[in-house]
Design a protein around this nucleic acid. Structure first.
Ligand SMILES: [Mn+2]
Ligand SMILES: [Mn+2]
Ligand SMILES: [Zn+2]
Ligand SMILES: [Zn+2]
Lengths: 140, 140
DNA sequence: TTATTTATTTATAATGATTACGATTTAGAA
DNA sequence: TTCTAAATCGTAATCATTATAAATAAATAA
């Protein structure tokens, strides 16, 4: 039930959309608040949240909900999964991953109407791997 | 880095573990607070949260983090996925689902060290499907 | 262009989930 | 039984997000 169109295009909305389209970092609302504020110093955090919600409902961006902490947003609308570092929470794309196959008969045991699925990979990014080996080797 | 053992077995901890093992409903901390309080009326919600965390770190239960709202806990340690109703947030098990296969070469594009993955199915449970068709048919 | 109408914004307060605090109690070792 | 670190309780604090209400501004009509 996605609302296809946006009602009004305000400066705030335009800049938010512009900034999120300009990054591959899957920023949080707070991340975007920081960068957007450079161009619109008077914008409020609530406006960022509200617009991210509106843009998500309009299908212009996707909201990524991981376990805990802040949600992240992604202007990359192509089908792809994500890989998150458990140490620093960095999120990167996993492209070219075939959509997972699930046997409808297996799921039909539940009598649910299946809408879709969420898949997230977890791991440790190169930077954090480096840091971890630095600290664990000299002592202990 | 899971801590294998529990240090002390208090009444509170025992009852919490007992109750979560007694259900297949994937209860929230608040759900457990309600049922545990019938046996230990003086227990505090903080104690429930703290013990769920300790039991999770000890590997005796699993914490399930979905997008938003409260976390859920599961004493079923066997490998299985979950299916959640987007309407009422009910969570049921998806047993006998083959672990998803991901090509390490695809993921190696990221240079992450892969630890694992989270997979959740979303859908609409039979009860909610019924309710939705009830309300949408008579009018409009 | 100017007026009108609402959606939107801002600043701030409120909420919901979870974690932290400090005084008191207690499990389990000695 | 004594001792002490771990755990508990009640409460306060924190974090992410949503709600409120007065002021502003985008789109439309006059
Ligand atoms: Mn992405
Ligand atoms: Mn389960
Ligand atoms: Zn990292
Ligand atoms: Zn349901």
């Amino acid at each position: 039930m996605k609302n296809a169109n946006i009602q009004r295009m305000t400066d705030q909305r335009r800049v938010i959309l512009d900034e999120i389209r300009d990054t591959k970092s899957h920023p949080t609302a707070d991340d975007l608040y920081r960068v957007v504020r450079k161009r619109l110093p008077k914008i409020s955090l609530g406006t960022v949240y509200r617009n991210l919600d509106i843009l998500t409902n309009a299908g212009l961006i996707n909201k990524l909900d991981f376990g805990s902490g802040q949600s992240r947003y992604d202007a990359n609308l192509s089908e792809h999964y994500h890989l998150r570092c458990v140490e620093c929470n960095r999120v990167v794309d996993v492209m070219d991953m075939p959509p997972i196959h699930y046997d409808r008969t297996v799921l039909s045991q539940t009598a649910f109407e299946i809408i879709g699925h969420n898949l997230e990979f977890v791991g440790i990014c190169p930077d954090c791997r480096q840091k971890l080996s630095d600290t664990s080797d000299t002592s202990e």
